[in-house]
Design a protein around this nucleic acid. Structure first.
Length: 245
DNA sequence: CTCGTGACGGTTGAA
DNA sequence: CATTCAACCGTCACG
């Protein structure tokens, strides 16, 4: 039932049961992972998130489980704490990048969350199309670069322009957009900020507007908004509690 | 209907 | 340089 298509430079791209495009064996794009976490934080249920973002339920569950346990939205091999990257000197290079980008001393006793946030910033700042910003600790540059371009192509066709990835053509716009993303992600993983919360609200509103379009396009089980809102609030309280721990 | 989990096939980097 | 292996990925199906 799973249709597959081969995309040069990416590998086997497939379409899951929800109609979403994915690349087998490759992590979801960062903005998709971020949207999953943001939607979960505002109380959207995982099943709704999977339907909205066209990501499989299992993937949403895994990402949220990882996020609740570690506070990280990154794929497991990113921060070099585990996986194959820990064997080589990636962590040293990561520390250098952190010093340059985030002004965090590598020798300072940083918490896991600050390290994660800095790694997120480092990765997002490096996700611009400028070759010298290609990630050194992630995948190899050439493969990652081709994948990133292709994934942007895919999700530009999947998501509305408000939730679509940034335009790779202009660096300054990328930088500003990355700042928006960074502020939203830092507000999630650190303390809440008033200005960034508006950004979160903005992005979530965009996503929710997409939800309306999707629901109008493909009506799910006919459920009234009031009952769903109550369930959303309940689950939101539960997740806020778990997050506060 | 929702959610957690394991199997599966695929990708990636190191050895 | 090609091959092998381990770790990780997302999807799917099951309970």
């Amino acid at each position: 039932m799973k249709s597959k298509l081969y995309v040069p430079g990416v590998g086997q791209a497939g379409v899951n049961q929800l109609g979403g495009v994915f690349v087998n064996g490759r992590p979801l794009p960062d903005h998709v992972r971020r949207q999953i976490v943001e939607l979960a934080l505002v109380g959207i249920r995982p099943c709704d998130i999977s339907r909205k973002l066209l990501v499989s339920h299992g993937c949403v569950s895994k990402i949220l489980t990882r996020f609740y346990e570690t506070g990280s939205i990154r794929p497991g091999s990113i921060n070099g704490a585990n996986g194959r990257h820990s064997k080589k000197g990636y962590s040293n290079r990561m520390d250098v990048n952190k010093c340059q980008d985030v002004n965090i001393s590598p020798s300072s006793n940083k918490t896991h969350e600050t390290e994660e946030a800095s790694s997120v910033r480092n990765y997002q700042s490096s996700s611009s199309t400028s070759p010298e910003h290609l990630p050194t600790n992630f995948y190899s540059s050439s493969r990652y670069f081709s994948f990133h371009q292709q994934s942007q192509f895919f999700f530009q066709h999947q998501l509305p322009p408000s939730a679509a990835p940034t335009n790779p053509s202009s660096d300054e716009n990328d930088a500003s957009d990355d700042d928006d993303d960074n502020s939203s992600i830092s507000s999630i993983e650190s303390k809440p900020n008033t200005s960034s919360s508006s950004l979160i609200k903005h992005s979530i509103e965009n996503i929710l507007s997409m939800k309306v379009t999707i629901k109008s396009k493909r009506p799910l089980s006919s459920s009234s908004h009031s009952s769903t809102d109550e369930r959303i609030n309940n689950s939101n309280n539960k997740r806020q509690k778990s997050l506060a721990c």
